[in-house]
């Protein structure tokens, strides 16, 4: 069966190639724009660091107190850590404004920062897509631009012939809008070839929704108090108890 349609060869030069080239160029541009929009790494505040590390220290003490040899050492340290935790001298904000009220996540500058960053990366993703789609729809609406060299089943019709309403047309003909979709989804490997590998990773990353920070952190004063309580009930058992016998046993003496 001879093809029932004859495509103008200038379609290839003036439609197919421009769409592909624009898609690639926009993709590269987008990856650089996202790079620029990436938030700068932040220096953590020393009060935050101290709060976190002191809390972690108390937790580690509970887990690792077996390294101490005598109970006296354990009790000394336990009393000191309990005092440090409950007196609140390592808390980030020493004075709490209102204890019962959950802090509003929208008023917290750190939380809104995270949301704004997410918005930025999403904008870099969907704005160029909207613009290109508008451009294709405006100039090349209803164009058939190529014919696939292999036959396909009818199921592919909706994928390959978007924007043209001809139910009897062979599935092998591809419309301009469909070509746009195919390139949008299929250019990932081309980008990883053109861009260096680390940039390509970011292209993939930005297509996933950015992780949002947990809004509303727990009240640290309460966390400290709870840790202090579990510290108080901690039991002491040294790993060096009867170690002499253990060693002698293991060497059969």
């Amino acid at each position: 069966m001879s093809p029932d349609l004859v495509l103008d060869p200038s379609l290839k030069v003036w439609v197919l190639l421009p769409i592909s080239a624009v898609m690639i160029l926009v993709g590269i541009l987008r990856s650089y724009v996202t790079n620029l929009l990436q938030p700068l790494p932040k220096v953590s505040k020393w009060r935050d660091v101290r709060e976190q590390q002191q809390l972690q220290k108390a937790r580690l003490f509970r887990g690792n107190s077996h390294v101490l040899v005598s109970k006296k050492e354990f009790l000394n340290r336990q009393a000191y850590l309990y005092e440090a935790l409950t007196s609140g001298k390592y808390l980030k904000n020493a004075v709490k404004q209102n204890k019962d009220q959950m802090p509003n996540p929208l008023s917290d500058p750190n939380a809104s920062d995270a949301m704004f960053n997410m918005l930025k990366s999403n904008a870099a993703n969907f704005i160029p897509q909207t613009v290109i789609m508008w451009w294709i729809n405006y100039f090349f609406a209803g164009f058939i631009i190529m014919r696939l060299p292999f036959p396909l089943t009818l199921r592919f019709k909706s994928m390959l012939q978007q924007g043209i309403d001809t139910p009897d047309l062979d599935v092998r003909w591809v419309s301009s809008l469909s070509w746009y979709f195919v390139t949008l989804l299929g250019l990932q490997s081309v980008f990883s070839l053109i861009l260096s590998s680390s940039n390509a990773v970011q292209v993939i990353q930005q297509q996933m929704p950015a992780q949002m920070g947990m809004p509303g952190q727990p009240d640290m004063a309460k966390v400290f108090a709870a840790e202090g309580e579990s510290l108080q009930v901690a039991q002491f058992k040294s790993s060096t108890d009867s170690i002499e016998d253990r060693i002698l046993d293991s060497y059969k003496l």
Binding site: V69, S239, T240, I243, E244, I247
Partner: peptide, 9 residues
Amino acid sequence: RRHFLRSVE
């Protein structure tokens, strides 16, 4: 003594 023993354990 116990610390030395622990290290060789």
